[in-house]
Amino acid sequence: MTEIKSLRDLPARHLLGAGTPMCGGCGGLEALHQVYDLLGEKTVFVNAAGCMTLLAVYPFTPFRGSWLYTAMASAPAGAQGVRDALDILRGQGRITPEEDLQVVVLTGDGSAYGMGLAATSGAMDRGLDFLYLCYDNEGYGNTGQQYSAATPHGAHTATSRGALGYPGYKKDLFSIWAAHRPAYVATVSPAHPVDLARKIETARTRQGPRLVIALSPCPTGWDYDPAETVAIGKLAVECGAWPLKEYRDGRVEHTRVPKKRRPVVEYLERQGRFRHLFHPVRQDALLAEIQARVDGYWAGATATGD
């Protein structure tokens, strides 16, 4: 394993085939290609229903290794079947260690935060040796961005079009996962590729359930110019709305603590999904609440020494 210290340690050669049907400027695809470069082609991705269902459309696949599409609820169960089968084949000497594959679950937030959560919990209970990559674009993107359990408070989605947007709050999936005490949990952002790469390298060297959530800016669902994907991803981290952190060995650590957090409005106002918080009238109370929640998070994080 190469130690990732800076950008120069990132792969310059890209494994994921181009030509996928993902939207131009897709933050999820950006995360996937960065992850794939590090994991390599000796992998089998087990996919759930979401935007990336359509990564492989017969006869086209972007993967140089393997891929299995299951269903929205059960990608971790598919990973269980593949992992167990490979272990059985190894145990019987029917395949060599060189033929073995890493098993990677790939789902969106719709599956990860909701329908697939029981299957993920089960896979962690069973100590399944797998990596889970969630591309979190904070809504049911593939069906036109309806709100999901990952949608942030106040966001306009296809099913929350009111003046104050989505009334619920983004579920803390990181903590739910970490409460299972798996081998590794991390949040990443493809706008921070070095941090992402370090975490994927860490995950790669550990055994057992390893789960990673990538905040994946979505020009189509979040309503911004595709060219802004990285800029918005960076802002999410710099304003503190998307904390970069990892859980291992019972401890949570923040891998990047913004020295001085930028105001959350700077992040919100660049996205059409929050436009109603600024026009025609500025929703000051709601904006203050969103800021207070971010501040509250970081106050707690600092207090516990994370």
Binding site: G19, Y58, F60, P62, G65
Partner: peptide, 18 residues
Amino acid sequence: APAIHAPATSTAVQTGLW
């Protein structure tokens, strides 16, 4: 069976036309 046995065939799709 609707399985693909070749790697990275998506590169045959010219998304540059978008």
